[in-house]
């Protein structure tokens, strides 16, 4: 079945220069394996389309049931250079939560 990510995870995002950092956290740590499988760097890049000019790099923190995603060249230069309303990527985490993910009903904890 397909489910929007916000059903099983929450997120917070911020900036590191021109990169947006998104912390994505499974509400139930038992569902971490689903986000680890589904939320790949490539899928995140595809989800945000031309909003992210650079690469997406993913780090895993299984101890927190969480992923840390770095979206490079995503903030229009970042910091004071950016002309974007969301120059610091504060809403990027929420933007990720609309992504549809695939899973078997039985694996949902």
């Amino acid at each position: 079945m397909k489910l929007p990510l916000h059903k099983i995870a929450h997120a917070r995002s911020g900036d590191k220069g021109d990169a947006s950092n998104i912390g994505l956290i499974a509400y139930n740590p038992a569902n971490y394996k689903i986000i680890e499988r589904e939320v790949t760097a490539a899928r995140v890049k595809e989800h945000f389309g031309d909003l992210v000019a650079g690469d997406v790099v993913r780090y895993e923190l299984p101890n927190l049931g969480a992923l840390n995603l770095l979206l490079y060249e995503a903030l229009g230069g970042g910091g004071t250079l950016s002309l974007r309303i969301d120059a610091q990527g504060k809403t990027m985490g929420a933007g990720l939560l609309s992504m549809e993910i695939d899973m078997e009903e039985s694996e949902l904890a």
Binding site: A11, R12, D15, K16, G23, Y59, L61, N68, L70
Partner: peptide, 11 residues
């Protein structure tokens, strides 16, 4: 957890 991941690079 949300704050731990905030503005984090390589964990």
């Amino acid at each position: 957890k949300e704050q731990l991941l905030y503005e984090l690079g390589d964990p």
